[in-house]
Design a protein around this nucleic acid. Structure first.
Length: 474
DNA sequence: CTATGGCACGGATT
DNA sequence: AATCCGTGCCATAG
């Protein structure tokens, strides 16, 4: 509340200003960082002044303030989240790992808006010649959100007029990059690749590949008896194989990327465990029930950006021909600085409200997510809905349990219903039909159509009732 | 006959 | 204006 009032009013001055604020808003912090670095090296009017660390905790802050955490925490109520801009290590580790490695010789295809394709490409780029990189980029941008390939190698081959074995060769390379199995066409294929790589460092069940290849649908239906028959082993052994697969492999390579399981990184992997760097980190101040939440919003760069005062003075005596240019640079720089401030301001305000509203969700999980639309939030904050949309898009948030989730999940309209549905099915004694589940959900206060239950089930990867035996296993 | 998945329509959301 | 989502209707599998 107070924060907002005291912030100097950042009124949009020109349409250019407005337009740029908009575009900056939808950038990820990492993307914005690149953008600023580029500007910094090309524009002499822009200057980066040394970082200001909080004397208390060492966090790097936007302004010469004491970090809100260290300035005498007098917070007693959970109503007030502590929101501030900071740039601690977590915000940087990720892309340092990437940028330090290879050059970034303006390959236009690496600047895709998604991080996953770029991430993978960086890993394999050294092994490819320029032509192959184009193919690889094509493949990587054709992945769905699970990290599976949505088109066939033949299509790519045809598009580039090359034999398809070349495409397949590149795909094989991609599959062996992190996340393992990415770029496969089917879940099976992904599993097989993972199995293969895993097998190089430690023993794996000999029959596992066969189980995946031949008995994949039995596997996913948990039909262990039939699976056992197929493989000529007992159902117990079949179950063991299934467990191994479930514990160590992931049919949707990209999903691991979004947090969920921090525990299951393959042993011996020297790759960073944080795949997507968060734009925002939410943590709790203490372990008490009513602990205030701490929201740290990533600054795109360390230190503070400003117009170089020397440049400002020098402009008076600019050489004849340069005057125009210098003035333009000044304009440009100050615009950028203002826009970044505005971007931060918007995100701060948004998170401030959002964290209060979704507190239960942040602390206790999916089940407590309250449905809210971007439009409603925009209304409360007196911002345009498009603004919120942009601010939300592509951002990642780290929540107190360590998972990194897309900010968009805060606006998921049905997550809470889906999780209660999952619970219902987990606790069921005998398989319930979709219709049954629909009535049960209605009793819980979620009136949804039978057809919708089916869809939620599918989203959660739960099988239909008649394929669901329910003895044990986790 | 019942339980599900597919297709497609309309309204909400972005 | 484009997209997403819940739902109803219908075909199909069990």
């Amino acid at each position: 509340m107070l924060l907002q009032r005291h912030t100097p009013s950042l009124r949009p001055l020109t349409t250019a200003h407005l337009a740029q604020t908009m575009t900056l808003l939808e950038l990820t912090t990492a993307e914005l960082r690149q953008r600023i670095e580029a500007e910094l090296s090309s524009n002499p009017a822009l200057e980066l002044i040394e970082e200001t660390r909080c004397p208390g905790c060492g966090r790097i802050l936007s302004e010469r303030k004491l970090c809100p955490l260290c300035s005498q925490p007098k917070f007693t109520t959970s109503e007030e989240p502590i929101v501030f801009l900071s740039s601690r290590e977590d915000f940087f580790t990720h892309d340092r790992a990437l940028t330090s490695e290879e050059d970034n010789s303006e390959d236009d295809y690496t600047s895709s808006s998604e991080e996953l394709p770029a991430y993978v490409l960086r890993q394999i780029a050294p092994e490819l010649n320029p032509d192959e990189r184009v193919i690889a980029a094509h493949i990587l941008t054709s992945l769905n959100e699970d990290g599976l390939l949505t088109i066939t190698p033949a299509e790519i081959a045809r598009y580039h007029f090359i034999p398809s074995y070349k495409v397949e060769k590149i795909i094989r390379l991609i599959q062996r990059a992190e996340p393992l199995g990415v770029g496969s066409q089917t879940p099976q294929e992904a599993l097989l690749v993972q199995l293969e790589v895993l097998g190089e460092t430690r023993p794996v069940p000999a029959l596992a590949p066969l189980a995946i290849r031949e008995g994949f649908d039995l596997l996913s239906r948990r039909r262990y008896i039939e699976l056992g028959r197929l493989l000529n082993i007992s159902s117990t052994q079949a179950r063991e194989i299934a467990c191994f697969i479930g514990d160590n492999l992931n049919p949707y390579p990209a999903r691991m990327h979004w947090g969920e399981n921090i525990s299951s990184h393959p042993t011996g992997s020297n790759l960073p465990h944080v795949y997507y760097s968060p734009d925002i980190i939410i943590s709790r101040l203490n372990d008490k029930q009513d602990t205030p939440l701490i929201v740290e919003i990533a600054l795109p760069i360390r230190g503070t950006l400003r117009i170089n005062p020397l440049f400002r003075e020098a402009i008076q005596q600019a050489p004849e021909g340069k005057m125009e240019q210098w003035k333009a640079d000044m304009e440009h720089a100050s615009l950028l600085v203002k826009c970044i401030q505005q971007r931060n301001h918007t995100i701060v305000r948004m998170m401030q409200r959002l964290v209060v509203f979704q507190r239960q969700f942040i602390l206790y999980g999916d089940e407590y997510l309250l449905p809210i639309t971007r439009a409603a939030l925009a209304d409360e904050l007196e911002l345009h809905e498009a603004t919120i949309s942009r601010a939300v898009s592509d951002k990642a948030v780290q929540i107190p349990n360590g998972h990194i989730i897309p900010l968009a999940r805060f606006f998921d309209r049905s997550l809470h219903i889906r999780t209660t549905l999952k619970k219902l099915i987990e606790h069921e004694t005998l398989p319930l039909s979709d219709a049954d589940l629909a009535t049960m959900l209605a009793k819980e206060g979620y009136p949804v159509a039978r057809r919708t239950v089916a869809k939620y089930r599918a989203m959660e990867g739960i099988l239909p009732a008649h394929l669901r035996l329910r003895p044990q296993s986790l």
